[in-house]
Amino acid sequence: MALFEAHSIHKRFGSRVVLEDISLSFEEGQVSGIMGPNGAGKTTCFHCLTGHHKPTRGRILFDGQDITGKAPQRIARMGVSRSFQLMNLFDDSSVIENIILALPDFRRRFAQATRSVFDDRDLLEQALEVLDQVGLLGQEWAPSQSLSYGNRRALEIGVALAAKPRIVFLDEPTSGLGAEATRQLAALINTLRSKYTIVMIEHDMRFLFELADKISVIHWGQVIAEGTPGELQSNKWVQRSALGEVA
C-alpha cells in the first residue's frame, strides 16, 4: 500500500464541478508530480488531499488511515505538511523565528512559555538543522522579508519541513521564480528527496520531468495520464512538442 492514497475524489461547489473523479497514490520516499493546464483542478485537488476542502465523494487514506473530511490541522499533526501558492511567511520575523514557530516542540511548549524561545537551545538547534536542510544557514537572523524570492520559497519549504512531516505537499513551488532561482530550487529538492516523501503541483513541465519519479497529469478534473517522466515523454505527441527535447 502506498503512503498516501486518494480514491475517486469528486468535488463540487454547488452546480460547479471541479473534480470529476480523481484517484492518486504517492509512494513513500518518492517525488511525485501533479501537472495539468490552468483550470484543470490541481489546486482544488491539493486542498482536498490536505483537508482544506472536504471532497463531495471519495476517500483519502494516509498510512492506511482514513483521513477523509478530517480538519486540516489534524491531518497536519498526523504528518502531512503543505506549502501554499501564495507565500505564507511572517515577513517581519527573522528567518529562524519562522521555522521555530512551525516546530512541533515549540507548539507543545507554547502554553508554558515563560521564557524567550531563544534561550531554548534545543529549539534553536532543531531550527538550525531545518535551515541547514534548505540551505539558509547563515541567514537565520535576517528578517524574512529581506530574502530573495527564491530564498523565501526555500524558507517556506523549511516551514513545511519544520513540522517533521512524513509527506510534504508543495503547491506550484516554481511560481514567480526566474530561471536561476528555479535551478536552485530543483537542486534543493534533489537534496531533500532522500529524506522526505514529496508531492508537487507544477505547471512547469520541464521542472517536473527533471525531478519527479512519477507524474500524474490532471485535466477535466480527472487523471488523464500517469507514469514516469520517461514513459510520458515516449508519447509521440509529446515527442513532437517542445517537451520532446527535454532529456
Binding site: 493546464p37 497529469v217 488523464i224 495520464a225 510520458l232 505527441w237 509529446v238 513532437r240 512538442s241
Partner: peptide, 19 residues
C-alpha cells in the same frame, strides 16, 4: 478541446480517450 502541438498535452488527452 484545445489542442496545442507545443505543450504535449495532446498525447495525454488521446491516451485518456483510449483509456
Amino acid at each position: 478541446p484545445q489542442f496545442n502541438t507545443q505543450d504535449g498535452y495532446i498525447g495525454f488527452m488521446l491516451d485518456f480517450f483510449r483509456k
